[in-house]
């Protein structure tokens, strides 16, 4: 699946998007896999209460299933307007 990062999450991880091979069942499982990869991921995902997640471009939550999902995006709370 494609994993996208925005704002300071993108800056901490160092790339705007990447393709990730994962068998994670939920968003939280995916976060655990990413955290275990490298320090920059651990830093970005240190506090998931400071993060939001979108699945296939719709806001979701960390308990959500990844079944059939093609695009996961992680970002801080939005500041539009």
């Amino acid at each position: 699946m494609d994993v996208l990062y925005f704002a300071w999450v993108r800056e901490r991880i160092g790339v705007p998007r990447e393709t990730v091979q994962s068998s994670a069942g939920t968003v939280l499982d995916l976060v655990e896999e990413l955290r275990a990869r490298e320090a920059r991921y651990a830093a970005a995902f240190a506090d998931i209460s400071a993060l939001r997640v979108a699945l296939d471009q719709e806001l979701s939550n960390f308990d959500a299933s990844l079944a059939g999902v093609r695009e996961v995006a992680f970002f801080p709370p939005m500041t539009g307007g």
């Binding site: 704002a7 939005m78 500041t79 539009g80």
Partner: peptide, 23 residues
Amino acid sequence: FLKSRAPFWKKEVSKNGASWVAA
């Protein structure tokens, strides 16, 4: 709803550095 449900993120860049605007 635009403020906190539309995926925009603001970054302020000043002489003192750059910082993301917190929600």
